[in-house]
Design a protein around this nucleic acid. Structure first.
Lengths: 243, 243
DNA sequence: ACCTGAACACCGTTCAAGT
DNA sequence: ACCTGAACACCGTTCAAGT
């Protein structure tokens, strides 16, 4: 009678966490962070807002989950056999391209790195870069600084290159990166050369430069600085003009 | 009779833009970005919300104005006579300390740098660092890259060091940076050494390091990388493993 | 000119109620 | 267990109305 065979138990579940997160990503990709509202998400999933809280959690958790999914995909890429500096470049470029595809990711990456040191994203990025730094033959007391420097640069560069649409104002600056840069270039060239000599002179470079290439060169510059430092030990590089 | 002497014109103005922005900063300092609501601001100024829109603009403009005020104060500091690299360090540290005092500033700085290239903040920072880079004797084609690398690093480091309170979870992590770092250290040390060898080994450094010193050393590392590159011209540092 | 504050169109989140 | 969706406590912004 009560032979309870543990039937598939007539599951009422019709919503999966995975499916929700996929929809979150779609919403973010289409309209940026502001487009992610619990209501919009619920509607696209043909459900009530409560179901989302039940399956995933509050809005912040939706963002975390989407971020983790994207970043873990980047972190999972092989990277075996390549040199330490190449491994760093590969991860950095992987993240760069991920932000290119998902502009909302830059801000979320910063959030995770600063507020969730226990999270898979923070730990994965630090571990990958850190272990590569260690393999570079740098003296151990410098490992942490070198890793932090690389992570900070990557974070800043991703933030700046994330193609968030600029504040609508001035000339019709579309969400197109090329147009954007060329309008910046024009604005800078028009500056008073006495007040902004550098920007005025560099205006052309802003229009013509390639973000991705500049990013790679930045990584190279930092790696060079790290390697060179291994030879010249403790020079006096204290706290600048501290007053 | 109608000798209209242009009296002080019985001004009804009781609210100044300056006073509003000062109150915005106070609100942000006390409770972070989420504490800045138009309603809270209006109440502290004993006025209606409409008055704020009349004097300054929408909420985003309140944030911009507060950011500009703080950053322009940092940019205005002398910097005459000091060496180019010292000028860069001074500005970077000035921004670092400003973020320390105003944690909300980090995010706003990123916003301005990425979305308001015409703004005083973006232009001031790029001009100051760029002209210092130019004075360092670097070949002209490298000016833009070098400047961008420095700005990106500064941006990333400020973001990461901004003492935003972490997501409340896990051990009682207060808004105190020291406690925060030491709890991170404990968590990292507890990690499986097989899965996270680097983090496990570096755990102590995380607890003991000084953010500000690490920041300065990061700047030095990058400056070194930039200077060294001037000797070794166009090596092949293209696009990593582009597939 | 300058300010008021109610009204509008949204939010995220909760939770009794249903199945 | 899983989901619904009304209700609650907020938002930013606008704008007729006042002085």
């Amino acid at each position: 009678m009560t032979s309870s065979v543990r039937l598939p138990s007539r599951t009422n579940q019709v919503l999966s966490r995975h499916g929700i997160v996929a929809e979150v990503t779609a919403l973010l990709d289409a309209g940026g962070e502001e487009a992610l509202t619990v209501r919009a998400l619920a509607e696209r999933l043909s459900t009530g807002s409560g179901a989302i809280y039940y399956r995933v959690g509050p809005r912040s958790e939706l963002l975390n989950a989407a971020t983790e999914t994207v970043v873990e995909d980047v972190l999972a890429r092989p990277g075996r056999g390549v040199s330490p500096s190449q491994r760093i470049r590969d991860l950095a470029l992987g993240l760069f391209d991920a932000v290119d595809e998902h502009p909302w990711l830059a801000t979320q990456l910063v959030n995770q790195l600063t507020r969730r040191p226990w999270g898979a994203v923070t730990m994965g990025i630090f571990e990958t870069i850190g272990s590569a730094v260690r393999s570079m033959g740098i003296p151990r007391p410098r490992w942490f600084d070198a890793t932090a420097t690389l992570v900070h640069f990557i974070l800043g560069a991703l933030s700046q290159n994330a193609r968030t649409e600029p504040e609508s104002s001035d000339p019709g600056a579309g969400p197109d990166r090329g147009e954007f840069l060329s309008s910046v270039s024009i604005a800078w060239r028009a500056l008073d050369p006495d007040q902004f000599p550098f920007l005025h002179e560099i205006a052309d470079d802003a229009a013509e430069h390639d973000d991705r290439q500049q990013f790679v060169r930045g990584i190279s510059t930092i790696l060079r600085g790290i390697e060179v430092a291994s030879d010249a030990p403790t020079e006096q590089e204290q706290g600048a003009s501290d007053a």
